[in-house]
Amino acid sequence: MNLIKTGNSWKFATEADLEDFVWANLKELFGLIPLKRQYYVKGQICDILALRENKQLVVLELKNVEDRYIVQQLTRYYDALQEVKPLEDEIDYQQPISLIAIKPNFHRDNFTDKKYHNLSIEFFEFAVLADEFNYYLQIKNLDLDNEKVLKIEIAHQDRERREDIPSPSRGLMSHLAKCSSEQQEGILKFRQKILSFDKRMEEISSAVSFKYGNGNSKTSKFCTEFYFDSKGIPIIFLWLGFLWLGLKNNSSDRISRARIWTDWRGNALLEGYVPSGIGTKINLSKKTLSTRVKIMNEIVENKGFKDHKGYKDMLQHSKDRNRIARKLNNSEPLTYEERKLLEIDANEFTHVIGGGRLNTYKFDRYDSLNGLVEVALEKWLKRL
Score class of each variant (00 low, 15 high):
213 G>M: 04
336 Y>W: 07
186 G>F: 05
258 A>R: 09
252 S>A: 10
114 K>D: 07
49 L>Q: 14
61 E>V: 09
21 F>T: 03
211 K>D: 13
67 D>G: 09
23 W>R: 08
142 L>A: 02
246 G>H: 11
292 R>L: 06
243 L>R: 15
133 F>R: 09
9 S>V: 08
372 L>V: 03
339 R>Y: 03
176 L>C: 08
105 N>V: 07
352 V>F: 07
168 P>Q: 08
67 D>F: 05
29 L>F: 14
162 R>S: 11
255 I>K: 07
370 N>W: 00
2 N>G: 00
49 L>G: 15
218 K>S: 05
314 M>H: 10
202 E>L: 09
128 V>R: 09
172 L>G: 02
72 Q>N: 12
150 L>F: 12
90 E>H: 15
94 Q>T: 13
290 S>H: 08
338 E>R: 01
228 F>H: 04
105 N>C: 06
61 E>M: 06
213 G>A: 07
45 I>W: 06
13 A>T: 02
38 Q>W: 10
255 I>N: 03
217 S>P: 01
264 W>C: 09
247 L>R: 15
218 K>V: 02
118 N>D: 14
17 D>R: 12
229 D>Y: 10
133 F>D: 06
326 R>T: 08
259 R>W: 01
239 W>S: 14
74 L>W: 13
73 Q>L: 10
196 S>R: 08
162 R>Q: 12
114 K>Q: 14
286 K>Y: 02
288 T>Q: 14
134 N>S: 12
116 Y>N: 15
215 G>F: 04
170 R>P: 01
292 R>C: 02
303 K>D: 12
68 R>M: 05
240 L>E: 10
126 F>L: 11
204 I>W: 05
293 V>H: 03
332 E>G: 01
329 N>R: 14
293 V>W: 04
6 T>W: 00
351 H>W: 14
186 G>A: 11
130 A>M: 06
48 I>S: 04
136 Y>H: 10
66 E>F: 00
113 D>C: 10
206 S>W: 04
66 E>L: 09
332 E>Y: 00
381 L>V: 01
109 D>M: 09
11 K>E: 08
216 N>E: 15
175 H>R: 07
120 S>N: 10
245 L>V: 01
145 D>S: 14
168 P>E: 11
56 Q>A: 06
116 Y>D: 15
371 G>Q: 12
343 E>R: 12
210 F>C: 05
227 Y>G: 05
8 N>Y: 13
47 D>C: 10
214 N>C: 05
83 E>R: 11
172 L>K: 02
247 L>C: 05
230 S>D: 02
350 T>W: 13
331 S>E: 14
119 L>N: 14
306 K>P: 00
161 R>A: 06
102 I>P: 00
37 R>S: 15
341 L>M: 12
148 K>P: 04
185 E>R: 15
95 Q>I: 09
119 L>V: 03
99 L>M: 13
348 E>G: 00
352 V>N: 04
294 K>R: 14
281 K>Y: 02
228 F>S: 02
181 S>E: 11
95 Q>K: 13
182 E>M: 05
338 E>H: 01
292 R>K: 11
330 N>Y: 08
186 G>W: 05
361 Y>M: 05
366 Y>R: 11
222 F>C: 03
379 K>N: 13
309 K>L: 07
384 L>V: 00
372 L>D: 07
236 I>H: 06
65 V>C: 06
28 E>Y: 07
215 G>K: 06
219 T>G: 01
330 N>M: 10
156 H>M: 04
9 S>H: 11
